[in-house]
């Protein structure tokens, strides 16, 4: 499906609970409420016209004002793709795991938990992942994080 067809299909199929983010990229971009995350993921995966079986990427983002989690999904069968994201307040960032829809989300969510300090509800294995086992310097991917040997480069003009 093209970008316009995908946007029309999803706004009609997931009525009222999805917001379209306009951009000039070739794939559509949606914002969903964190409470609707699992339902939306299930809908994308199971709808016969969408069949979003391929979780390509899952990235946490700290915008400075809030936390976002961005999902990039694609269909192995139908080859189309889209992005969607959830937004959460910085002081209370909690979202549900989508592992029951895309098992590949397991490690991505562990990474978001470890590097950003967002809580992933119902995740079976939130344990130290990329960082050292005795790491106690906070959440390094947050904006404004400072570590003992982390020196921001000067901005030259």
């Amino acid at each position: 499906m093209t970008k316009a067809e995908l946007t029309a299909h999803i706004t009609a199929g997931f009525t009222g609970r999805v917001q379209v983010l306009e951009n000039n990229q070739p794939e559509p971009y949606f914002i969903v409420n964190p409470d609707d995350l699992v339902a939306f993921a299930r809908y994308l995966h199971d709808d016969p016209a969408l069949q979003m079986t391929f979780l390509m990427n899952l990235a946490g983002v700290d915008t400075g004002e809030r936390f976002e989690v961005v999902y990039s999904v694609c269909s192995y069968q139908l080859k189309h793709r889209l992005l969607f994201k959830i937004q959460m307040p910085r002081d209370n960032a909690e979202f549900d795991t989508v592992m029951q829809v895309w098992p590949a989300a397991n490690w991505y969510e562990r990474e978001v938990w470890e590097l950003f300090g967002m809580t992933v509800r119902n995740h079976p294995n939130l344990t130290r992942f990329l960082l050292a086992d005795d790491w106690n310097e906070g959440f390094p991917m947050r904006k404004g994080w400072t570590g003992t040997d982390f020196i921001p480069l000067p901005d030259r003009g």
Partner: peptide, 30 residues
């Protein structure tokens, strides 16, 4: 803006998710 672009690498999909705030440095890269 934000973009997810991907290419076919020899080991599979190589994707880059990039967020720009209009500055000279990437705001977020995954």
């Amino acid at each position: 803006g934000e973009v997810y672009s991907r290419i076919e690498n020899s080991r599979g999909e190589m994707g880059v998710y990039l967020v720009s705030d209009g500055g000279p440095k990437p705001f977020r890269m995954r």
